[in-house]
Nucleic acid binder design. Structure first.
Length: 118
DNA sequence: ATTCTGACAGCAA
DNA sequence: TTTGCTGCCAGAA
């Protein structure tokens, strides 16, 4: 092998890239949770890593709909990381979601579980 | 190399 | 019921 990953985002390398790709697979109008992603990646329990990965999603080419990823409560825990605290909520509302008190009302109905859908 | 953090989740009090 | 602490894994300092 010649290169040893000078690229921050190789396709098959890293836990992060998988998170990005999986997040990118979330259909519009659907949302999922950190735990669901972590579980699909085989690292159940390490949902925190998913959030960490999405944190670096800003450096990832191709849009990563991180706003479709919330915690298991359906709360927009990472809204503060979208630049403006209201950006995430607006994006979700734009996709037909109803946000009330930083929580997605249709969370349970619109939940997209990768381990089930995929 | 070691230590700390982190957009969570689960369990205990 | 709500609030708080611990555990999980991987990356960054």
């Amino acid at each position: 092998m010649q290169k040893r990953s000078s690229v921050p985002f190789a396709d098959n390398e890293g836990f992060f890239s998988r998170v990005y790709e999986l997040t990118r697979l979330i259909p519009r109008g659907r949302i999922t949770s950190y735990g669901a992603i972590a579980r699909y990646l085989g690292t159940a329990g390490s949902a925190r890593m998913v959030g960490w990965a999405l944190n670096t999603s800003h450096s990832v080419p191709g849009l990563v709909p991180a706003h479709r990823v919330v915690n298991r409560n359906g709360m927009l825990t990472g809204k503060h990381h979208f630049g403006n605290s209201s950006t995430m909520q607006q994006l979700l509302e734009n996709e037909g979601f109803t946000i009330e008190d930083d929580r997605i009302i249709e969370f349970r109905e619109r939940f997209w579980d990768p381990s089930v859908e995929l």
